[in-house]
Design a protein around this nucleic acid. Structure first.
Lengths: 227, 227
DNA sequence: CGGCGCTCGTGCACGCTTTCACAAAAGCAG
DNA sequence: CTGCTTTTGTGAAAGCGTGCACGAGCGCCG
């Protein structure tokens, strides 16, 4: 029997949201039961990996049958802490911050924007997707008022560390960083970084390699169909 | 001596842009020479890792001294294929697509938006950050006209596969996918996925764990200062 | 010009991740 | 109830990535 309260390897944690989304989609299409094989196909991964990932949650499949979508959805939600909505606060109401504030994908998947702040007086007061941009000073008030624990840094690189410091001072314990800067934070704070330009630079590397392909590489063995 | 034209492990490729950014920053601050130790500190990683990563490029450091910033910048740029600008085309001019089109970070780091397309007639014709939103049908024209090889999918999930198909049909060989959907593409096409909600869900998992911390975990050994 | 101190480059061991392969279990048919 | 099919759950092996530890090379100082 699998462990039900163990620490799940990070690699698996990252895939759980993918499975979750697929399961929800399938369930909405009246698919009640799904095999690891099928789920793997939809997620673009190996079936054994799916089974191992799911086994960290517990033993929720039925041999010879597969996984009951609805039940599995519940279990993944529970494990990911998605049984309730999480408020998030966004620092930086530039291009990206505003897009994030208005991004429908958040609310659909368990998050809502409790507030967005910026330093720019010209922006403060404007309303984005129904949310008023507030002053940076109001950060602490927003965080404590809504019991926010997740902060999003969407500032330019040179303001990112300051934004992070303020978030942490306000009580935030998880940060999603979109600024192209390495944040230095206490060990108790979890940071995840998303760097848009870095992603393009990685693609650039593979394109570059493709050009310099006077080498071994058969054709495109670099990566297959992917996540 | 290190290999100079080998395949670089993906994990290293992902860190190179980070080093690059830091090196540029340092060089602009008149730092001509930098040790792996210092670079590691700024990048939030282990010094041995930095040296190993850089060794894939070749043997460009000087023992007892460190790395010459300017030269290393050039070498990383060369390896990543950033010696010239790459045009990219964006599919989807919603919230996110528009933010990406206007995002300064791209142009600063070797990319420019050759075009942005959408299906919505109401959006077509509008100008975002100096770029006119064009019809989806014009995709092929944009791609061939500017010799674009990198495409960005910024559509809703249900339109993502179609967007990818069209990009590939137009000749795109690398895709950056922001839609919460798994794209199925030929093996020769490289896809990278950025899923904003997934990132938050991962943070949610660690927050959830924190609450359920009646367990082993001392305090916050989950992750230290991070990327 | 020899010795010393510093930092790179990398072999090696360890730990995490992926994948394979198969026994165990469930359903179904007769 | 027995045997057959299907699919899970998981040991074990293989593959990667990380970090330590140290030899090798470089510069500097006397």
């Amino acid at each position: 029997m699998a462990q039900s309260r163990r620490r799940i390897p990070e690699a698996s944690v990252i895939r759980l949201p993918v499975y979750l989304r697929i399961l929800i989609e399938q369930f909405e299409q009246q698919v009640d039961n799904i095999s690891s094989e099928r789920l793997a196909e939809l997620a673009g991964v190996n079936a054994a990996k799916v089974r191992k990932d799911l086994s960290y949650l517990g033993s929720y499949g039925t041999r010879g049958v597969g996984y009951e979508a609805e039940y599995l959805i519940y279990q993944i939600r529970r494990e990911l802490g998605l049984t309730h909505d999480w408020p998030v606060v966004i620092v930086g109401a530039g291009n990206l911050g505003q897009a994030l504030a208005g991004y429908g994908g958040f609310s659909e998947r368990g998050f809502h924007v409790a507030g967005i702040v910026d330093v720019d007086d010209n922006k403060i007061g404007s309303v984005i997707a129904g949310i008023r941009i507030r002053a940076l000073d109001e950060l602490a008030k927003i965080v404590s008022g809504h019991e926010v624990v997740i902060g999003v840094v969407a500032t330019p690189a040179d303001a990112a560390q300051d934004a992070a410091d303020r978030l942490i001072a306000a009580g935030i314990t998880s940060i999603l960083n979109f600024a192209p800067a390495v944040l230095s934070v206490p060990a108790s704070v979890v940071v995840r970084k998303v760097d848009l330009a870095t992603e393009l630079q990685v693609l650039s590397y593979y394109e570059q390699r493709r050009l310099t392909a006077l080498h071994s590489v058969p054709t495109g063995s670099t990566r297959g169909a992917s996540a």
